[in-house]
Simulated scan of single mutants.
Amino acid sequence: MRASPLFTGFVYIFLGILFTFFAIQNVNQQGWGFFSYLLVLLATIDFGAGIRMTAFHFITKKKKNKSD
């Protein structure tokens, strides 16, 4: 069984929040280093993918309802 794009989007957004939290903790403890930038990059990618998957869910749902 495949996961819906809405669920996948929420998982990506959750991961983005988690990576953002870890990045903030890392910057507070050690300052801006390679690992901090890597965490921010991962959070950005996850937020983008989460928003895209959530939008995809609502667009396909709208098209499906329009064709019915």
Rank of each mutant, 00 (worst) to 15 (best):
Gly31Asn: 07
Gly16Arg: 04
Arg52Asn: 13
Gly16Leu: 08
Phe22Asn: 05
Val40His: 05
Ser36Arg: 04
Gln30Met: 05
Gln29His: 12
Phe21Leu: 12
Trp32Thr: 10
Phe34Val: 08
Thr44Phe: 10
Ile24Leu: 11
Thr20Trp: 04
Phe47Ser: 01
Phe7His: 10
His57Asn: 09
Phe34Ile: 03
Phe14Leu: 15
Met1Pro: 04
Leu38Cys: 03
Phe56Val: 02
Lys62Ala: 10
Phe47Asp: 02
Ala23Phe: 04
Asn28Gly: 13
Ala3Ile: 11
Lys64Ile: 03
Phe56Glu: 15
Gly48Ala: 14
Ile17Leu: 15
Gly31Glu: 02
Ile45Arg: 02
Gly48Asp: 00
Gly31Ile: 12
Ala43Cys: 06
Ile13Phe: 05
Lys66Thr: 00
Leu41Ser: 13
Ala55Ser: 06
Leu41Val: 02
Ala55Leu: 07
Gln25Gly: 15
Gly9Phe: 06
Thr60His: 08
Arg2Thr: 11
Ile51Pro: 01
Leu39Ile: 01
Met1Asp: 07
Ser67Asp: 04
Phe21Tyr: 15
Thr20Asp: 04
Ile13Thr: 14
Phe35Lys: 10
Gln29Phe: 10
Phe14Gln: 05
Ala3Val: 09
Phe56Pro: 01
Gln25Phe: 13
Leu38Gly: 01
Gly9Asn: 01
Ile59Met: 06
Phe7Met: 09
Ile17Arg: 01
Ala3Asp: 08
Ile17Gln: 08
Trp32Gln: 07
Thr60Gln: 10
Gln30His: 12
Ile59Asp: 10
Lys64His: 09
Val40Gly: 01
Met1Arg: 02
Ile45Cys: 11
Trp32Asp: 03
Phe58His: 15
Ile59Leu: 07
Leu18Lys: 08
Thr8Gly: 02
Lys61Cys: 07
Leu6Asn: 01
Leu38Pro: 00
Ala43Ser: 14
Phe47Glu: 01
Gly16Asp: 02
Lys64Gln: 10
Ile13Pro: 00
Val40Ser: 06
Phe21Asp: 08
Phe7Ser: 14
Ser4Ile: 04
Phe7Pro: 00
Asn28Arg: 14
His57Val: 06
Ile45Val: 14
Ala23Ser: 14
Gly31Ser: 02
Thr60Arg: 13
Leu15Ala: 08
Phe47Asn: 01
Phe56Thr: 14
Lys62Thr: 08
Leu6Arg: 05
Tyr37Cys: 02
His57Phe: 15
Gly48Pro: 00
Val11Thr: 11
Thr8Cys: 06
Asn28Ser: 12
His57Ser: 13
Lys64Thr: 05
His57Met: 00
Ala49Val: 12
Met1Tyr: 11
Ala49His: 05
Ala3His: 06
Ile59Tyr: 14
Lys66Ile: 02
Leu42Gln: 03
Gly16Lys: 03
Ser67Ala: 13
Asp68Ile: 06
Ser4Arg: 05
Lys61Pro: 02
Ile13Lys: 00
Ile51Tyr: 12
Met1His: 14
Phe14Trp: 07
Pro5Gln: 05
Phe14Gly: 14
Thr8Met: 13
Gln25Glu: 12
Phe34Cys: 04
Val40Leu: 14
Gly48Tyr: 08
Phe10Trp: 08
Gln29Tyr: 11
Leu18Met: 07
Gly48Ile: 10
Asn28Asp: 12
Leu15Val: 09
Ser67Leu: 13
Arg52Leu: 12
His57Ala: 09
Phe10Ser: 08
Arg2Phe: 13
Ile51Thr: 13
Gly16Pro: 01
